[in-house]
């Protein structure tokens, strides 16, 4: 499939990712991986089979190297409000 010919504007890339697994980077050090089923012009999205990854930096005394904790959880079906979205990455293609 010749993908580049079908993409004229950024949202075309998201349309071609419908029913495929996408990676979504969000504000607040959050990242989602899920199957994209719906979106709109605000980048509100509905994803299924979602894994959320949150990076948490625990407070440490000064001079100590801060450690980063990663919290993961699974959600069956999720609406994501578009104002938190930083980027959407389509599935990896051959």
């Amino acid at each position: 499939m010749q993908v580049s010919g079908e993409i004229q504007e950024p949202f075309d890339l998201i349309r071609l990712s419908l029913s495929e697994r996408v990676m979504v980077k969000l504000r607040g050090d959050r990242q989602l991986s899920g199957v994209l089923h719906a979106y709109d012009g605000h980048m509100n999205m509905i994803l299924s089979d979602v894994e959320e990854t949150v990076m948490i930096v625990d407070p440490v005394p000064e001079g100590v190297k801060p450690s980063i904790r990663v919290a993961k959880r699974q959600i069956e079906m999720l609406y994501v409000r578009g104002d938190g979205v930083i980027l959407v990455s389509p599935p990896q293609r051959e």
Binding site: S19, H37, I46, I75, E76, M77, Y79, V80, R81, G84
Partner: peptide, 16 residues
């Protein structure tokens, strides 16, 4: 930020 939805009540094909 998010709303967790009831997957069983949704029609994926219709949505897409």
């Amino acid at each position: 930020r998010y709303v967790q939805l009831p997957a069983s009540a949704m029609d994926i094909q219709l949505l897409e």
